[in-house]
């Protein structure tokens, strides 16, 4: 089985994002970038499936600027066998990314696509579902456990209030939730080997995909800061204030 793992390059989890002074977007210049953490979980899951013998090849794919090669190298260091960059400097929105990925799926013919449930930059939570729709494949979003046996995929999904088990025929799309696994660290030898693994570059035009944005971001702003209200001395004062001042206790 071949697994395709789409990965996104995002501003690192630990960076405090700043809005540009003109409010046109957030400042991404000279900011530390990393692989979207949920995609890292997806890569890890693919590698585990290969280690269990359920998969033979893992292809990482990223859509975006040339710098996404770094993210792909990270995926290769974590265990992907080869990588594809769909290179574009355009503002790639979720629908466009899903279409690009669908075109890559058509070329690569994987049986499984695993990706993060959402990217921590735009927090859209769309690409996996859109890709499944475009391919007419079943989807298993927010996965916390993935098992493959024969042509069947069994996934435990995080749903509100608990877990749901879904069973589906391959090919399918899985989106990874936080608890699916704990990604490994890339080992030093694998980081060095990653440089030698194949990385191909494609252009959206060659894939026949129109990536024109469908939404326009008019402005971005930081939310008004919530002000702390100060400290109370003890439990009695707290309860009194909640009752009499905030009036949230009867």
């Amino acid at each position: 089985m071949k697994i395709l793992v789409p990965v996104k390059r995002v501003i690192d989890y630990n960076v405090k994002v700043r809005v540009k002074p003109d409010g046109s977007g957030v400042d991404t210049a000279n900011v530390k970038m990393s692989m979207n953490p949920f995609d890292e979980i997806a890569v890890e899951e693919a590698v585990r499936l290969r280690e269990k013998g359920a998969a033979a090849e893992i292809v990482a794919v990223s859509c975006g600027a040339a710098a996404c090669q770094e993210t792909l190298r990270t995926a290769l260091a974590l265990g992907a066998d080869r990588a594809i960059l769909v290179e574009s400097d355009a503002d790639l929105q979720p629908l466009a990314v899903a279409k690009l990925l669908a075109a890559v799926v058509a070329r690569e013919q994987p049986q499984l696509v695993i990706l993060g449930k959402q990217a921590i930059d735009d927090d859209s939570n769309q690409v996996g579902q859109m890709l499944a729709a475009l391919l007419d494949w079943p989807q298993a979003t927010f996965a916390s456990k993935v098992e493959v046996s024969g042509g069947t995929l069994v996934v435990k999904r995080e749903v509100d209030g608990g877990l749901e088990t879904v069973e589906m025929a391959l090919p399918a799309v899985v989106t990874a939730d936080l608890r699916l696994n704990e990604p490994r660290y890339a080992t030093l030898p694998n980081i060095m080997k990653a440089k030698k693994k194949p990385l191909d570059t494609l252009k959206p035009d060659a894939l026949g995909v129109d990536v024109t944005p469908r939404t326009v971001t008019l402005s971005v702003a930081e939310p008004p800061k919530r002000k702390g209200g100060g400290l109370v001395a003890d439990v009695k004062e707290l309860v009194a204030k909640l009752r009499n001042e905030a009036k949230v206790l009867s």
Partner: peptide, 11 residues
Amino acid sequence: IYAGSVFATVQ
């Protein structure tokens, strides 16, 4: 977006 540290107005 960005975990609620930024709000975008989108058309």
